[in-house]
Design a protein around this nucleic acid. Sequence first.
DNA 1: ATAAATGATACCACAATAGTATCATTTGTC
DNA 2: GACAAATGATACTATTGTGGTATCATTTAT
Lengths: 130, 130
Amino acid sequence: MKLITRNTDYALRALCYISKHKTVVTVDELVEKLGVPHSFMRKILQQLNKKEILSSFKGQGGGFKLKIPPARIYVIGIMRIFQGQIELSSCFLKKDVCPNKGKCALRKKLRLIEKNMFMRLKRITIASLV
Amino acid sequence: MKLITRNTDYALRALCYISKHKTVVTVDELVEKLGVPHSFMRKILQQLNKKEILSSFKGQGGGFKLKIPPARIYVIGIMRIFQGQIELSSCFLKKDVCPNKGKCALRKKLRLIEKNMFMRLKRITIASLV
DNA sequence: ATAAATGATACCACAATAGTATCATTTGTC
DNA sequence: GACAAATGATACTATTGTGGTATCATTTAT
Ligand code: FES
Ligand code: FES
């Protein structure tokens, strides 16, 4: 089981690379430098653009650049874009609301671990990686 | 994204239930108490038996009981049985061994978080849940 | 002998992951 | 204006993982 998927991983690498360049970066350039499939890289950058982490520029001379400073791009945020809400502690007993909730020892302990993990993940930014 | 899957979850519940009973417990009993599908529960218990966490007894009057004390059954171990090796920090760059390994800032930070998480998960045992 | 239990194994449906492919649109350059 | 170079939008596909079901074989208490 992987906690970080390929698209998250590639997104992080791309963001690191882009953050080191003042000028716009094209998909072609990223594909060449990172060795990631072209279409896949493109889709990932488009998603980051929609989430307002990147700005895009169409046409000749176009490409992508960061829309927000690298110190404000958190790994946990990128994970959530590509992997959805991450949770240790959802209850599978009974469909809707668990009657045992609040009393459940497992959930309590897992929630603590989860909180700690999120806190640590929040401290990793693109700025801290380059 | 879920960090704990259904089979892990059901396995933990089943182990908790079994640990509270001195006599053997049948699949039917667990199914009734936990509201889990019969075949699914059976498969899960068979896997726990293979991993030597449960002992099984065939024939009439048979069922399952713990093979090792509840204080030595760790949540992380059960997760690994049903979800495989859990890793934050596998590298997706280049198929085999990453040339950048050792220098990669992301992996270093993730490995730290991972270690901390494992340490905490290791402290949760079936005994600590019941 | 039979019924009650697990063992082994194979199968299936659905969702998530990891992509690919194509047409549309924008824009700088000749 | 034509064209090429870039992204936008969207739809499709392939593989793997998750969440099961089903069936036949084997063991064992009664
Ligand atoms: S049993 Fe539902 S939250 Fe633990
Ligand atoms: S780039 Fe390979 S381990 Fe970070």
